[in-house]
Design a protein around this nucleic acid. Structure first.
Lengths: 160, 160
DNA sequence: TATTGTTATACTCTATAACTATA
DNA sequence: TATAGTTATAGAGTATAACAATA
């Protein structure tokens, strides 16, 4: 693992340690994302991420989905168009607000999303089994819980 | 990395636990990537990732960079063209092989890369300080080491 | 007037295909 | 023939700008 910018850590004031952890975390997470994407062979496209959003926020409108993913509603519309053309999502007119259309997963869309999720998780689980023992798995579990809290500090809806 | 390499599951219930950890890990990492990208305001584009590759593999050719990032050499060429037009990288003819051109970071490119890295890490460090205590930071540190080994099982060059 | 959604246009990143130059 | 690099073209994903319909 190359570290072109090794930060010194002689004495352990917690401040420097956190900087180092943040830097290492960013790097290892980047490695993980790219490795899983490449090896599990499921490119994390806008479409699959959007499927995840719709799964969690059923009945959301295009504008709402755009806010969730931090893209413009014009961009989100094109993605939803493509998902709809693949019969992965459906548009339903809002009975109350004539401007809105509610987006939902079709059965086909639910199956596709679950399949994509399982494929990536299975690959990662296999890798973890190969190289980590029970205690290390437990450490990962704790770290996941901590990271969840760190990220939850500001409310952000999660995707796939 | 540093630790020895103990492995192999012994207790049967651990199997299910690993599946759960893999699934949770994939999800929390997805959250982390999107949150850092959105909040730290530094979109992880092909250009910045490629800058990271070139930094670690100075003097690599376009074809080699393409292999590292798992893209076609035609695509990599366009990215390198853009980096060159911004004076972030330089092309130098290979003295031995007349077909090759060696790509290197310019001083400007090194500065830009470092700035981008620091911006994301600083944001993440701030977040960790807000929500995690010293023991939890230590857990994150251990998890990073474990993840590094899990990912190193198959040699993949790392990006930004 | 403000919001929702659409259409038009452009830029980035990626791919495939066909080409040139060098080994 | 095989490899390194370039050029041409296309699709996905994003943005901005201008527009119509509804609230």
């Amino acid at each position: 693992m190359s570290s072109p910018n090794p930060s010194r850590q002689s004495s352990p004031p917690a401040a420097l340690k956190v900087d180092q952890v943040a830097d290492d975390l960013r790097r290892v997470v980047g490695d993980l994302v790219r490795t899983v994407r490449n090896e599990a062979h499921t490119p994390s496209s806008a479409q699959s991420e959007t499927l995840g959003f719709i799964d969690r926020n059923g009945g959301a409108s295009i504008s709402e989905l755009a806010v969730f993913r931090h893209v413009k509603h014009q961009s989100m519309r094109l993605v939803v168009d493509q998902l709809e053309s693949q019969a992965l999502v459906s548009r339903t007119p809002d009975p109350v607000d004539g401007r809105k259309q509610r987006i939902n997963l079709t059965e086909h869309g639910k199956a596709a999303l679950e399949s994509s999720r399982n494929q990536r998780s299975r690959w990662l689980a296999h890798r973890i089994r190969q190289t980590a023992n029970a205690a290390e798995v437990e450490t990962l579990r704790n770290a996941i819980e901590i990271l969840g809290r760190v990220l939850a500090a500001e409310p952000e809806l999660s995707g796939v």
